[in-house]
Amino acid sequence: MTARQVAEQVLDPELPVLTLADLGVLRDVREDGGRVTVTITPTYSGCPAMDEMRADLVSRLTEAGYADVEVRTVLHPAWTTDWISEDGLRKLADHGIAPPQRIGPHAVGPVPLNLEPPSRRVPCPLCGSIRTTELSRFGSTACKALRRCEDCREPFEQIKEL
């Protein structure tokens, strides 16, 4: 396997249904002679899993025979949920987590203020109903909101757009 293939299969420590490649945090993998340089970017500034991602990348690549591995971090450009792959969106939905919608490039100028929770329809990943409500904008990790389905009455998590 190439170093890129190995790195692409490393799982996200907090959302283990996704690989780092699915999540869009794996930015680059380069092989130069015996040396592998992997570049990753954090989802949120306070993401507590960065050290773990670095350690996982180094150990998986080492196991695959790449002895000289460097993991670099980039902060720019800032991660966006638009970088989650189509495959990643599907895997999230399959595991009961509502995927984010595509938001496109950020508009220039002041960030608009939202005085109400977003009105967009988020289908329930369990029963498909569109009658769902936001319980909290902040969920079990920084990247998730908590919602409830008004039909099947189950709570579910949603990756919020960033």
Binding site: S45, V74, N114, R137
Partner: peptide, 20 residues
């Protein structure tokens, strides 16, 4: 510049939460 560009997205959620 990079810390700020990233922080903007987070702070927008914080401000909306407070305003609501």
């Amino acid at each position: 510049a990079a810390v700020a560009a990233k922080g903007v997205k987070e702070l927008a959620y914080h401000r909306d939460h407070a305003a609501q």
